Each structure stands twice: as structure tokens, then as C-alpha cells.
Simulated scan of single mutants.
Amino acid sequence: MPLDEFDLIRRYFTRATPGAALGIGDDAALIAPAAGLQLAVAADTMVEGRHFFAGADPYSLGWKSLAVNLSDMAAMGAAPRWFTLCLTLPAADAGWLADYARGLFALADAHGAELIGGDTTSGLLAMSIQILGEVEPGQALRRDGARDGDDVWLSGPTGAAALAVRQRYGELALAAADLAHCAERLDRPVPRVALGRALRGLASAAIDVSDGLAADLGHIARASGLAAEIELALLPQLPLDPAVQAVPGYDLARLAGGDDYELCFTAAPAERARIAALGAELALPLARIGAMRAGRGVTVRDAAGQPLALPRAGFNHFD
């Protein structure tokens, strides 16, 4: 017997929501943010053929569709609490839905985020999640707080996801171990929620690297009325076979590839010791990769200090 919309929701997505006054099952959910906290709200959509390849593993899609939203909470220094899901399906396939829900809730449970509502319909495979988090007033990490002379930091190496995309398009051939690492980074990114929370009161600005490091740092620069400089030699190297560094476009992947979901943030030079200690505490390779300066735009400098030209700035959803 085919699943209808309500059976689908009951079977795969209805769970207890102790953190909400009312969860799935009514015309709207009811939530009560903790006293004195602000709500941080974000939303992301993933569409087959635009954000993921046809035939993608449903468990990984469930994981990633929430991960990209959790990454937005991380970039704001917010604690994720609730989310809604709008799911468009070509067909109500029970096996696909079970695997998608497992991936979704594996990450949701790890971060204490509750699914409290949404919608389902038929059509081209797509998933939209809206997430709500809590943050202390005045403590949210924003893009407009960087100051002239601030250091620019990155929470981990970028570029692996972009290399996985190139592999799937047949543009390069990675060794099995390297491909496995790159595919994991593309399909099941790890949102830096704990880091974002720890950066409250420490970072002056932050953003998650979703569309490409140079492009996303450019958003901080623009919002803060400054220029940003990246020193290519300071970017953390991907943990791949050294031969991969000779692949044409390797540096472009690290600078403009997107889908990394690391945090890029700025902080005063006086905070270097505290940030280093935080990296050790969280077992994250926090790297100082540049600085904010007076001016406009983003400049990438090579080992000799010469500016590099970037063929493109980063991912654009309407290219």
C-alpha cells in the first residue's frame, strides 16, 4: 500500500520533542525560547542536480541537509534547538525515507536539535530546512565586527569537497584513500557548533565556509568595511597524498571550492594564545591565515607576497 503524506510523516519524522511546547501534528509548532536569549534563525535548500548528484546516498543527504543549517548556527555562535523540514519527493520510497531519516536524526541527536514541523510534497527531489537556535543578547557572532589589524583564522583545511566534485565529474582521478576522505567531506560535513559557541566574546566576526573561502571571507570584509588578505602559504594542507598538491586547480579548490563548512573568523592579535588553546581543547587545527586591512576586497598572496588572481570567487547558486 503506498504511503500518503500523513503516514510518511508519522512513520519517519514524528518523534518526541521535549524542548518544544508543541511539536509535529498541528498547524504550527509552539516553542518557548529560554528566558533572556535571542532566537537565531536560518534556512537552506538542497536541490538534486544543483547541490547534490542524482542517486546520492539518502543517509548522507539526511545528514548534510541538516549539517549545512547547523553550520549557520555555528557561524553565529548559537546553540541549535529546533528545525523544520520541507521535503519534496519524486516518490514516497520507504527504503529511501528510512535511510534519509536515519542520517538526519543521527546529526540532530548529536546536537540536541528537535524536528518540530515542516511539509512534504511530490516533485523534483529537494529538501529545505529552517533551523532555530538560541544565543545570548550581544554575543552572536556577526559578519560586520572585524577590525583593521585583526587576524583571519580558519578552523580546518578547505578544498577536499571540491576535489570530490571534480572526481565525480571525471575531471581528475584520486587514489582510493584520498577519494574516501574527500567524499566524506563533501557528503557528511561536520558543523563546527562547539567552536562557534566557544568563540563568543573572542572572535570579532565569523562566517561558515560554504561557497568558497575567498568569497565567504569577502562577505566579512564587505560587511565590516575592510579588506582581507589571505597568505596562501598559511592555509592548512589537506591530509592527502602529497601528489594531490600538484593537481591543476588544487589551490583554487582550497580558495574557491566551497562545501567545506569550516569556520572562518577574525580576532584581535592579542587573542592568539587563547585561540591556540581553544584549538587544542577542541582538537581542531585552527590556523591563522591572514589579516584584515583598510581597503576593500580580498587579496590572496603567494609565498613571495605577490597577489594571485582567482579565476572565480566561489559558488553562486544562479551560475
Score class of each variant (00 low, 15 high):
P2D: 15
L3C: 13
L8Q: 00
R10F: 02
Y12I: 09
A16H: 07
A20Q: 09
I31L: 12
A32V: 12
P33K: 08
P33G: 10
A34I: 01
A35N: 08
Q38T: 00
A42F: 15
D44C: 11
T45Y: 01
G49V: 06
A54T: 14
A54Y: 14
A56N: 12
D57E: 15
Y59W: 15
G62W: 07
W63K: 09
W63T: 07
K64E: 06
A67C: 09
S71I: 07
M73I: 06
A75F: 05
A75I: 05
A79E: 14
F83N: 01
L85D: 00
C86I: 08
T88M: 06
D93L: 11
L97T: 02
F105E: 04
A110H: 10
I116F: 03
I116M: 07
G117K: 00
T121V: 09
G123A: 12
A126M: 11
M127F: 12
I131R: 00
E134P: 03
E134T: 08
G138V: 04
D150H: 11
W153K: 04
P157M: 09
A164F: 01
A164D: 11
V165S: 02
R168G: 09
E171G: 05
A177W: 02
A180L: 12
V190G: 03
P191K: 09
A194K: 08
G196S: 04
G196K: 02
R197N: 13
A203K: 06
S204L: 05
I207L: 11
I207A: 14
G212D: 09
G212S: 08
L213N: 01
D216G: 10
I230C: 11
I230N: 11
L235W: 02
P236H: 02
P236V: 12
L238F: 00
V244D: 02
A246Q: 14
R254E: 02
G258H: 05
G258Y: 09
L263K: 04
L263G: 00
A273S: 15
I275P: 00
G279C: 10
A280F: 06
L282A: 03
A283M: 10
P285L: 09
P285H: 03
L286F: 07
R288N: 12
A291K: 10
G297M: 13
T299Q: 14
R301H: 13
D302L: 10
G305N: 09
